[in-house]
Design a protein around this nucleic acid. Structure first.
Lengths: 340, 340
DNA sequence: TTGAAAGCGATACCAC
DNA sequence: GTGGTATCGCTTTCAA
């Protein structure tokens, strides 16, 4: 090598290419970005040299001047849960075609963690930020407002979104599920769900459940409301609790299919018949809902559609167009199977 | 506001803080990074002003000089599949504590796509890159070598890794699965798996299956080897094919639990008894393996451990320490349930 | 303990 | 069409 540069000799810059092509760096910059203004032959010549040299552009440098990172941040509570993973994949595919990369953060259902993540994502100059839910710390909202970065809140619907809100009315969905159980003649309906603190989806579902009971003239029994992690065990443990405490329960609304799965397996283990003794309704319509025995009645949560709409909205906002609408209600549906 | 800066007036820089604190920008830089060299009072003073001003550091600028992005790229074939999602989450948690952010890319099982992703990740100056498998395009390998970025290849084991290899011997695992089926007295053993092109895991599993048949003196029947997508349908369709073609099959080795699930459901639908008529062995030990009826015998693939080890290795390499070992075999195990 | 100067690599803006 | 110049915001290096 006969380069006369200092420092890391491996790093090829547009300067090196410029020297070899006998043009100025700025021409290289233009050529590499496919600017129409550069003569085609020059462009090809430069492209060839770049390839020969194994040139790899430095995004950080570009970001500094152009102010665009081509990165989009998405914060989900958890990504091992396939429900969020599906949406992430969908968003990634949607925006990937336009050259955007996803920066994914897990909040672990903590608003403080979300705040931290927003801070670092803003530092990284992401071009947009997608949040799960519309409940955030004041600091998070302040940062987001100040930064003027396009924001999408997904999953639940917000009346006053920071930017755009795309999701489902979780309250209504819970009402539908609870009404369905009531329509099956159930009167002692339990609720098992994830911890509602800092989680607007969980809060809305609980509220929908309680309001529906009340409207039907059924008593709300606090002992029948169980919350915990969004895991399998929460469902199994709640069932054990009901049985061991001798609480008579004739239906269970599990606010996630994973939890419902725990419920079903524990009921199976105890040989408690579904839906005869206890009816079960889940939430999400995860793949396992149709797999378990008996197959789970559940609310179909449009995780794929949400991802698609989020991607659309992002691309619209990022290209300066107005997003289709401030608030986009994707809708849900009740899938009746064997457990009710 | 009485700032005298041009351009975007919202952007607060260390210069602004310096002006307010009556120190030089470099002192602010040091203070904000918690350098011990700055007097504690000055440090606190600066921190307070930064907070007041809503200062958000610009990573791009830092990256340009310091050459570290605190980002780690991970390329997986697919992230909606919970098997990869779990590993991603584990890696994210492991490196997150040290301030690293994950940049996740999906290759969709395409080596060309992987190459593209590696190129953009290198552009983004990721501090390390994690790949799934050890099969890559020549261009990918060349870029990675030239860049001198720490590389981890996970999932399968490689004799000559680009950097560090952490995973499972897929060949051996397939041998174990096939031998298990043979030990159950099966002689017409089918293989259903994902497309092996560009996928060393799939290739190794097929090879293990074929070699084991041969060793046992069983004929390899090409009609019993079915490949397709890593989806549910592949399993169901293969079963239909076997039945409709009248091929007598007494065991099925499905190289992924999702595929095995399709197999089980289709067999159930056709009222073909497991394991009496057909024994089934899966691969992964996904959560559904113990949920389906009958419960699925499968190879437990240590997705969580892989994530943890990958994170450890990354942190070691990134802090200049040598990783524990070039090649790390995590091991697998056979979980016998009801389908065999 | 603090600061001045010199970039990092690429791009925007304005000449030519 | 092409090039010079001035940043972008921060950190490294060397002095004080």
């Amino acid at each position: 090598m006969t380069t006369s540069r200092r420092a890391k000799p491996e790093t090829v810059t547009i300067r090196d290419i410029a020297a070899r092509a006998d043009v100025s760096p700025i021409t290289v910059s233009r050529a590499l970005r496919g600017s129409e203004v550069v003569r085609p032959e020059t462009r090809e010549h430069i492209a060839r040299i770049a390839r020969e040299l194994g040139y790899i552009p430095n995004f950080a440098a570009g970001m500094l001047t152009s102010k665009v990172s081509s990165m989009i941040a998405v914060i989900v509570p958890n990504m091992a849960n396939s429900i969020f993973a599906t949406t992430l994949q969908e968003i990634g595919e949607g925006v990937g075609e336009d050259g955007y990369q996803l920066l994914i953060g897990c909040s672990d259902y903590s608003l403080e963690r979300e705040e931290e993540l927003v801070r670092t994502f803003l530092s990284r100059q992401t071009d947009a930020i997608v949040l799960t839910g519309h409940l955030h710390t004041p600091a998070t909202e302040k940062m987001l407002r100040q930064s003027r970065v396009p924001v999408v809140e997904m999953w639940s619907l917000s009346g006053a979104p920071l930017g755009v809100s795309i999701g489902v009315n979780n309250y209504d969905a819970a009402v539908t599920a609870t009404e369905h159980l009531i329509s099956r003649g159930r009167r002692r309906i339990a609720y098992i769900g994830g911890d509602p603190s800092g989680n607007d989806r969980a809060q809305a579902r609980i509220q929908g459940y309680r309001d529906t009971l009340e409207k039907a003239g059924l008593d709300f029994d606090p002992a029948l409301l169980r919350t915990g992690s969004f895991e399998f065990d929460t469902g199994a443990e709640a069932v054990s609790f009901f049985v061991e405490e001798g609480l008579d329960v004739d239906a269970i609304f599990a606010a996630s299919d994973i939890i419902a799965l725990g419920v079903i397996l524990e009921l199976n283990r105890r040989r408690i018949a579904m839906p005869e003794k206890i009816a079960v309704c889940g939430f999400d319509d995860a793949r396992i809902a149709q797999m378990v025995q008996p197959a789970l009645t559940t609310i179909k949560f449009p995780r794929r559609e949400i991802g698609q709409r989020v991607a659309e909205a992002l691309l619209a906002m990022l290209s300066g167009r107005a997003p289709p609408q401030k608030t986009c209600d994707i809708g849900y549906s009740l899938i009746v199977r064997e457990t009710t």
